[in-house]
Each structure stands twice: as structure tokens, then as C-alpha cells.
Design a protein around this nucleic acid. Sequence first.
DNA 1: TTGAAAGCGCTAACAT
DNA 2: ATGTTAGCGCTTTCAA
Lengths: 329, 329
Amino acid sequence: MANIQEVAKKAGVSVATVSRVLNHHPSVTPKTRVKVENAIRELNYEPSMLGRNLRNSESRLLLVLIPSISNPFYTEIINGIQTTAIKHRYNILLCETNSDPRRENIFFNMVRNKLADGIISMDPTINKQKLTELAEHHSVILCSEYMEDGSIPYVTIDNERAAYQAVKHLIILGKKKVALINSDERFLYARQRRRGYEKALTEFGIPITDAFIYNTNELNFHDGVQAMRMLLRTGEKPTAVFAVSDTLAIGALKEINASGLKAPEDIAVAGFDNISFSNMSNPTLTTIAQPMYKMGATAATMLINQIQSKQVESIVLEHELIIRESTMG
Amino acid sequence: MANIQEVAKKAGVSVATVSRVLNHHPSVTPKTRVKVENAIRELNYEPSMLGRNLRNSESRLLLVLIPSISNPFYTEIINGIQTTAIKHRYNILLCETNSDPRRENIFFNMVRNKLADGIISMDPTINKQKLTELAEHHSVILCSEYMEDGSIPYVTIDNERAAYQAVKHLIILGKKKVALINSDERFLYARQRRRGYEKALTEFGIPITDAFIYNTNELNFHDGVQAMRMLLRTGEKPTAVFAVSDTLAIGALKEINASGLKAPEDIAVAGFDNISFSNMSNPTLTTIAQPMYKMGATAATMLINQIQSKQVESIVLEHELIIRESTMG
DNA sequence: TTGAAAGCGCTAACAT
DNA sequence: ATGTTAGCGCTTTCAA
């Protein structure tokens, strides 16, 4: 692999001139430019990012932290991030943490070591303290899951209000016994969505029953099946279910079906996220749509601004209740 | 961010000694080692990968190229890659190309520039020629989709035989009119699976009808719906469908349902990949299971061996036909 | 055992 | 307009 020296020699110029051509510096004669360009082509030369980055202390690489690639929720967000990043000549690298702290550390260090210019974290399981430390000297944006102290800029939606609206929708349909399939409440979004659920029940004078609340370990289909199975075993069966993710909701639908019950007649079901599969399930799923692409695009814009030392403000985006067959069969 | 100089000064030693401590070089007195370690801790020092990589020409980073994160097929493969990489002190970065050649180029250059040590490509849309060029001087492994000339080591399954088995399964059920929903046949796997389909038909003396073969642009749910819609418009409706991906098959199921038909009674459906959703559809989907985790793990092992200049051989792994409700209701 | 110094590939300040 | 050169942070050879 040729380096800048060899190109300079071949073109009969100095390395500085080669560098200028590389960086489109205006002060280069067309004639020398051509000479250099020819040499570059002949030698198949590609500038080393390593040398360049070391010198410039910038890599134009952004890290995107996700707990798991298998969660379809992230797909559109990443799309938004990527498109925005490219528009600003940045590239993104996806980092799957699998909620493993060691892996987290590696990615944090990539930023410390200037191998990447900043991080967008969508990982609710992330070590908040370490991230805050990193954010003191480096560019960090939170997307979707955030920290209430506001120490790190974020883009998110109003989880509490969204959950409230979904549950209210179920209640208005005449369903009084609304169950909640929630995830681990050590996550902020889970606590917020629970608050929304409770607020809706309270508003309609419906008591909050522990037997109607089930917390899953993860957000997989199978957790939804399991949760629904447990809820159906309670003395009084629920007539509606609000699940905090579509994958859970689809699992719940499956179990309802397997028990010989019908959605929405026997049990209405609402999910959260509006993943593409929520339109493929049978029945199709009522859910809360988050503006995923926009969330991603916003997060990327914020991060790039932060890297360029501009002031950034946290943003709460609008969501939307999408009514489909699982509640309005 | 402190650098090695400051650590050296603080510890009252030379940078060389600090470097030796960092790299666990045996020839350092325990006493000096402690001095240096203290300085490192006090300054919160983290060695710069940039400097280190520039010097060592290695990054211990592996790139994984996928066309799109939204395809669940890749999930388990990536899991296998990641677990294996970590075991060998490598880290992986996911690179979504979106089939955009410019993005491809950026990732290729990351390898050329030593920002990454090698690439595992799972992208069927990749520029074969550029990849071959890259592979001449760098470590590259193909996973799933590969090149028949064998110029780049690969790990894959026998697509033709797998498709043959799936279609044979449909025929044995008594379905004579078997349609094929294939993707773009510029991809090797698509051509191979078509060959398997044709081989099964031929073996049972069933003529191959163009009207029963539909090629989609992409592998999304919606393409499956569209494909099925077209197939249902043919004069003679098919009684079975083999789709080359589960997402397509689930789309086909949806359309069958929407037309008031029943799977498998009216039309049996088989997919390919055994993605997690294939067990969540209604009816659950008969499909070909690829050993995804093993494929990923194998690809990672091969890549790491190649980086270490060991000899690597291409591997064809075993698949399995999983029979579920969509063919055996 | 430790230190001095060269050099990995590049950019930019300064000089011409 | 172009060249010379220092230096980004690190590792490693050579010398002490």
C-alpha cells in the first residue's frame, strides 16, 4: 500500500503538495494537480485514515450503541441517523453491546482515543455513570432512553402520555380490565409507561391491580407469550392488554389465539413502537408509533452539532396512536 | 486526555517504560511498574488506539458488512461472529451498506487504511470486483453469499439442495402446482435456489411454468404480498408456494389470507431462513433453517486465522427442513 | 532494567 | 504556488 511519500516522489513534488491535492486546497496549479492525481492513480494510493486522524484528531466516524440488533425498533432510527450522518460527511458504525459492560467500555474508549468522534446511545442498559463521565469531555447524545437529570442531551418521546393514550383507548372501547405487560422497571421508559397506564386507569376510576401487571425480562416474542399465559391464569381474566413493545404484544396475541380466545372480542391488545411486523400480525396490531426516522435524524444532527461545539437542546418528539384490528376488529 | 508523555513525566520514567508497562513487557521492575501504574491511574490515562494502531498496523477491529440491519436473517449470524471475535480479543463493527457503493467504498478503505483488520461480507449486492481487489492484500471472508470462483474463502450452505428439499416436501404433500417466489437472480443464492426448485419439479415430472415464478426486487414483507397477489392472478392458481426468504413467505401468507384462502389447505407455503418471526406467524411457517450462529462463528474464526496468515478453507454447513403449520396444518 | 530516538502517514505553519 | 519540517501518540531498536 503506497504512502504519501511515494506519491510525492512519483509526481516529482513534495508531500505537502500531495496533501493539498488530497484536501482540495485551492492553491494548487491545475498542472501540478494533474501530475499528482496521475501518480495517485498509478500507485493506487489511498490516504491512511490512521495518519490523518492522528494528525487531525478527528475520524468522522460516529458510534451508535444498541443493546441488540435483533430488536426491530431500532431499524428506522438507524436509518435516520445514517442518512443524516452521510449528509454531513460522517459515517456510522453500529455497536451491539448485548448489555455487556466490557463491550460498552471498548466503545467508550474508541471515542476517548479519537477512533470515533462521538456516540449516540440507544441502550437502556448502559452504565449511566460511565456514560456521564465520558460525556464530560466527549460528544454524547441519548436517543429514546434518556436520563432525567438532563446531564446528557437527548431526543425522545413522551412515554407517559403515549401509554396513557393507548390505555385510554382500550378503556373507551369498554374494556375495564386492562392488563399491563411491562419490561424491567429499572428502565426509565418502563417506569414512565407504567405511570401513563396507571394514570388512565385512575382517571376512569378503575383500581390498579397487581395481578394485572406483568414484568418481563426481555422484549422478545417469547416473553410476550409467557406474560399473556400468566395473565390468563389470574382469577379474573383481563379484557384488554397494553404491552410496552410490539414484539411483546405479538407474543400476547399468539397466546390469546392459542387459548382459543379472540382478539379483540375477548381481549383487545395494544402495543408500542409500530415496528413493521405490527402490520403483518393477525390481527394487525394497534400501537403507538414513534417518529423513528425523525428521532434518528434529530439525534445525528444534535451529535454533529455537539462535535462542532455548538449548543444543543434536548427534544421531545410527537408520537401517534395507530388503531388497527387488535382493538377495533 | 493525558498522553504517554505526561504519564512518563509524572512517573519520573521515560515513555518507553510506560509503553512497556502498558504492553506487559516482562523486563520492568515491580517498583517502576507500580510507579507507572499509579501515574496512569492518577491521570486517568487511556492509551490512544490511533497512535498505537499507526505504529503497529493493527486495530483488532473487524468489519461486518450487511446490506440492511432490518433483515432478521443476520441477527444470529452476527451473534456468532461477535462471540467468536471477542474470544480472540477482537471487536466487531456493523456496517450497513444499504447496497450503496459509496458506503461500501468507505468500509473497504477502513481496511486499507488499517482502521480495521479485516472484513466479513454478508452483502449479496457488494461489488464483487472491488472486493476481490481488496482481498488480494487484505483479509476478507464471505458469509452466506459467496463467489463461485473461490477466490475469496467463504462459509455457506448448499442452497440448491435446501431448496430442492423444501420443494420436494411440498410436492410429496400432493401439491403439484408449486410456485416460486424468488429474489433477484443476479444473486448467486437466488440462482441456486431456483435450480433446486427446478430440479425437484423435474424429478417428479412436473413441467416448469414461467407463470409460477415471480422475482421480487427486495426481501421485504410487502414484496411477498405483491408476489402472491400476482401469482393468484395467473389462470391456474398455484397450490403451493416456496419463497426464498421467510419475510417473503410471511407476506405471501398474509395475501393468501386476505384473498379468503387458507394455508395450507388451499395453498401450502414454505420459506427460507427460520427467522424468529417464522414461528410467530399464523399459521407458523415451514422453512429451511440455516445454522446461523455456527455460520457466524465459523466466518469469524476463518477471518481471524486469515489475519494471522494461516491457511483457510471454505466451508459448506448443513441446513435443516423445519416443518410447521403452513404446510402441515 | 531503562532511556534516547527513529518512524508509522499525515497536515499545517512557516519559509521561499 | 510549492517546499521544508515539526509533531500528532505510540512502539521498538539500539545503546547504556
